[in-house]
Design a binder for these strands. Structure first.
Lengths: 384, 384
DNA sequence: GCGCTTTGTCCGGGGGATTGACAAAGTAGT
DNA sequence: ACTACTTTGTCAATCCCCCGGACAAAGCGC
């Protein structure tokens, strides 16, 4: 029996941290709320909640915001999160452009700066990251919580970029580099996984325990949240569905094999197969119902639908959200996805599965990077 | 924000239970071991370990078994689990035969009884379960821990059988019924999931954090362990890969759709496609290299390999074990599975993925039912 | 005005992990 | 054989922090 990390003790400090994160989450999710309500929701005593809220108020993370209506007794004092109590530096390392921004605790972006990558080598690209961080950092008006980075490619759990798509980065320990250079906690993760966490944390009232977010753009990737946690798998490669072979007789992929999902369903692949000059033109002609491009778009949708059917069949995850530039293809594409996913999976399962349009989401990677950091530093999502 | 179960507090009692389970797991996995070693492994203090071990010894679950070699100081007293300190009643509700047995804490089966189902209706089948339990219970020589049941079909988390394959059981709350009738804790779960937990708990020195066990017999199903826990999904249907459509133009499945994995890869399907009189004959002719049946066997293997590629691509789980009667098909079949799984997934991923022959495993469901109960009652696997 | 509820806080109690000390029982060196 | 040093297991004291009860403040309904 070699592995023993699963033998990790529980301490009083952990109990405290858990309950502190619990109260913070309650404030975060349930808006202005009384201490008594938090106590009822969490099962903690009013005493403990009062103490934990006092801690949060001392840290400036929460504040009393007046009284609520009485329900037959003393009217409660409502406590709310101070959304701007902390600032997060977020980065989206796109394939051609790097973007940095500031975000508050709600993922509201304020200062956005971009830098073009054109022609820079790996070292210079890292320099660009540093410059962007220094640049937006000057605009911060509340204490910095840390740096969150989303990037294409494979990133392992400690924030080392295994390989980047079109940079000569290999085994670059970016999280550690950023922590040392800027003196702040840093998180680096794959962009699809960031997108999943953004959808989970900022996605509205529903917060499904299990959620798969599929990002379809230049590549095809997924972020998988299981039991309220991002799932990484044995090699932090979970969600790399773009290179599952869907058609062994298909065309060659840049990964060297034939018929990967990306060769059928990624934006460049669909544009090439449809023979249009640009993706914009493809969207226009798809919307117009052009018969010369529709079959290609539908085939791409069906390929994604089949992949979803495989996922839902195996995992029984009922919440699927699709984001990325490809969502501009609209109804025909989504219908193809839903039809194929439904046709290929068990009836009751297909009936309850929701495949949602998450939009093109230019900011989804920035938001995801922010969500990653909030999760890590404040425990805003479950992590134990 | 409707769902609030994720806001569950941590208490001192939970901390204690967690650490108690921790010590038990250490004894279970690491054999006779000193209190000091357990303290080092878990991070607990020697004081706490001593106290927790004393609790276990008082309950009869552990005992001192002499002294170990000195490493420069006082020689340690070794503590070991008493394998026979408790008895578990396990059941395998097969499609034609029900089997009951007693198991100790190591999953060693002692008293085995079977009952044929032939012609009984749903109510009589439940009676048979009761009789079998009463029957083996008389042979128990140590305190009973509870009842574990493995069954085909869909079972939800509270032990209610949603639908059974060839019994007229629908929404039968079997776990509750057994608890009331026999006055013991009861766990009911799908047989593939039971098999997964058996492989995880009793599978030897390796205990992978993530593990997929695929059971190929009369049906095709999977049990999925992620982060040391069985994963159920949103509707406790995770692992139902038998009805993912792999060939939309394939033959009709009993579920009503066409080309499900089961129509290609289950034992009855392969026997039918090969045209042999029995599965035994198919195995013999496959082993002999008969060209008339090999293509069918290889096609079945490739279908499973493709399904595995989809799973590993999505989840990056590197440990796959295949169990069930179909494993008797041996090397040709396994080679087809491994080749296809490798061909359809990313290079580095495929290289590290191990697809292991878990054997035909007549007892795997019984062992799994035992493992389920040990997990639930003693916390022998991670559950928080 | 009076009784009842609800809220938030204060205080004592207790569970349980931690720390430090110490005796027991080894090994290694001289 | 004697001394110095280690390691182990346990005991007592301490500390962290959750809990339960009590109580004042402040509302509601009659």
């Amino acid at each position: 029996m070699a592995r023993t990390e699963y033998l990790s003790k529980a301490t009083h400090a952990q109990t405290r941290a858990h309950n502190a994160a619990l109260v913070l989450r309650a404030l975060y999710d349930l808006g202005p709320i009384s201490r008594a309500d938090v106590a009822r929701l969490t099962g903690l005593t009013r005493t403990s909640v009062g103490e934990l809220v006092a801690d949060l108020e001392r840290d400036g993370l929460a504040q009393d915001v007046g009284r609520g209506p009485s329900t037959g007794g003393k009217q409660p004092t409502l406590v709310a999160l101070k959304d701007d109590a902390r600032t997060v530096i977020t980065l989206d390392l796109g394939e051609r452009t790097f973007t940095a921004a500031l975000a508050n605790l709600r993922g509201e972006l304020t200062t956005k700066r971009t830098g073009e990558l054109e022609g820079r080598d790996g070292h210079q690209a890292v320099q660009l990251v540093h410059e962007l961080i220094d640049d937006v950092r000057r605009e911060a008006t509340s204490p910095l919580l840390g740096i969150g980075v989303g990037t294409p490619g494979v990133v392992d759990a400690d924030g080392t970029i295994r390989w980047a798509v079109n940079l000569d980065w290999q085994d670059l320990p970016l999280a550690r580099i950023l922590e040392e250079r800027h003196g702040l906690p840093a998180v680096v993760a794959n962009d699809s996984r960031a997108a999943a966490l953004a959808t989970y944390l900022f996605g509205g009232d529903e917060r499904p325990q299990n959620l798969v977010v599929i990002k379809v753009g230049r590549g095809v990737g997924a972020g998988i949240i299981l039991r309220d946690q991002l799932f990484g798998g044995d090699g932090d490669g979970a969600g790399e569905i773009g290179h599952v072979v869907v058609d062994p007789d298909g065309i060659e992929c840049h990964c060297g094999r034939f018929g990967c999902l990306e060769t059928v369903a990624s934006v460049p692949a669909v544009v090439r197969a449809a023979g249009t000059a640009s993706f914009g033109e493809l969207v226009d002609r798809t919307t117009a119902g052009d018969d010369r491009v529709l079959p290609v778009v539908l085939a791409a949708g069906r390929a994604i639908g089949a992949a979803i059917a495989g996922l839902t069949g195996a995992l029984d995850v009922r919440h699927i959200t699709i984001v990325g530039s490809a969502t501009a293809l609209g109804d025909p594409w989504f219908s193809a996805i839903r039809d194929e996913a439904g046709r290929r999976s068990l009836g009751p399962l297909a009936r309850d599965t929701r495949i949602i349009d998450g939009g093109t989401g230019e900011d989804v990677t920035l938001l995801g990077a922010c969500a990653l950091l909030l999760t890590r530093e404040l425990g805003l999502t479950v992590h134990r």
